[in-house]
């Protein structure tokens, strides 16, 4: 599959191929996750793809019991909460991610700073729907 443009469409296509891809500015070396075509640091637009290791640490989180319609339709709700948070990748940038592997009945058992790893669940949503960025608490 040909992936060229630094767009969300490319990002999610890579994610389906189990790769967490961002962009790197060829001029100043700044890293961007999710990818973008234009460097917010040096204002140049010479980017290249950069694959992240998928390892990082937890910055913040929330256990959600009143979700959006999209998440309610996936079966989440007051008695079946989900957790999402911010992950700081070992390489520096941060990303928002759905977080798996935590005991959601005890939100305070989750520790800020704990290690995480990106996981790539098989795509089971209807054709065209994007799989969310997902990490597992180690």
């Amino acid at each position: 599959m040909e992936v060229k443009e630094f767009t969300a469409a490319s990002f999610y296509r890579f994610l389906d191929r189990k790769k967490l891809m961002g962009s790197k500015c060829k001029k100043c070396g700044a890293l961007f996750l999710p990818p973008r075509p234009f460097c917010g640091q040096c204002l140049e637009n010479e980017m290249e793809w950069f694959q992240f290791s998928g390892r990082g640490k937890l910055i913040s989180y929330s256990v959600v019991r009143v979700g959006t319609t999209m998440y309610e339709e996936k079966g989440y709700g007051r008695d079946t909460p989900y957790c999402w948070g911010l992950v700081q990748l070992d390489e520096g940038p941060r990303i928002s991610a759905l977080l798996l592997g935590a005991d959601l009945s005890r939100p305070d058992s989750i520790t800020i700073g704990q290690s995480l790893e990106a996981i790539f669940p098989d795509k089971r949503e209807e054709e065209g729907e994007r799989n969310p960025v997902t990490f597992r608490l180690e």
């Binding site: 969300a8 999710p34 910055i59 913040s60 989180y61 929330s62 959600v64 009143v66 979700g67 959006t68 999209m70 998440y71 989440y76 989900y82 999402w84 948070g85 911010l86 990303i95 928002s96 991610a97 759905l98 800020i112 994007r130 969310p132 960025v133 997902t134």
Partner: peptide, 27 residues
């Protein structure tokens, strides 16, 4: 309301406004 967040990269992982401010609260 969630559409006022980043629809592509935040709402996709389940962000709602209470849960966005919950991130700030946990930190």
């Amino acid at each position: 309301l969630a559409a006022a967040a980043d629809a592509i990269y935040e709402v996709s992982v389940g962000a709602t406004f209470p849960s966005l401010y919950a991130q700030i609260a946990t930190v």
